[in-house]
Amino acid sequence: MNIGLTGGIATGKSTVSKMLVDKGAILIDADQVAREVVLPGSAVLDKVYERFGQAIRNADGSLDRKKLGDIVFADRKARKDLEALLHPAIREIMKERMSRAELEHPESLVVADIPLLFESGLQHLYDEVLLVYVPEEIQIRRLMARDGIDEEQATLRIRAQMPIEDKKKMADIVIDNSGTPESTRNQIDLFWIGKGLK
């Protein structure tokens, strides 16, 4: 069985994915794959530099993710251009890793952690979609604390994604991560037992 795991910025997807892995799930992380496809020397990174210029390039040839983030979160067209460069390569690797994991571990839950799952229209690729949810005001507070940014920047980044309330309506399973870690863990346990996973 596989699930698509999604949420919004600062909803706690990594917390929930770690809890699932601790229970025995196999995680395929789109953010990790996204970092891999822009390693120095990759064709994808060359295209990113071609589109966004050398100002986002570190001295060692690696991508300055913060500078790129500042550009794409302030400009919808730039964000769409970046997605068009990255997403095909990311999807191909994710698909290959999911297939391999399901083949090698048919008894395990395979979890694809994809932040923009609904925005990309990929929900049909998974048996079910699990959403990690917190209300937007908690997202803003957590993002400000995590990234050391002000409320305006945090709101801009969060609003660049589909509203969390819309995602909540589309998900098959919702894990409310606005309470304590124990509360989140209890919800994961109930989900795990409900699926008959061992």
Rank of each mutant, 00 (worst) to 15 (best):
K77D: 05
S120P: 02
M162W: 13
D70N: 13
S120W: 05
H87D: 12
R79E: 02
I138H: 06
A101T: 06
G148S: 13
R141Q: 15
A160D: 08
S183R: 15
R57G: 01
L143M: 10
V129Y: 04
L125P: 00
R76F: 00
I173P: 02
P88N: 07
R91W: 05
G53E: 09
G121H: 10
G121D: 08
H124F: 10
Q161P: 04
S120K: 07
K80A: 15
L82C: 02
L103N: 08
P115Q: 11
D150W: 14
G61F: 01
D176E: 09
K67V: 05
I114W: 03
V134L: 07
P135L: 07
D113W: 03
L125M: 06
L103V: 10
L117Q: 10
G148K: 11
T184P: 11
R146P: 09
R100S: 12
E107S: 07
N177L: 10
L122A: 12
D127V: 01
A145S: 15
S183N: 15
H105Y: 04
P181N: 13
I71C: 00
D70H: 09
K169S: 10
R100C: 06
G69S: 07
S99E: 14
T184I: 13
D75Y: 05
Q139N: 03
L63A: 01
L130H: 06
R97D: 01
P181D: 08
R100F: 11
R65P: 06
A112Q: 10
V174L: 08
V111R: 06
I114R: 04
V134H: 03
Q153A: 12
A145C: 13
D166K: 11
D113P: 02
I173R: 11
V111H: 01
Y126H: 04
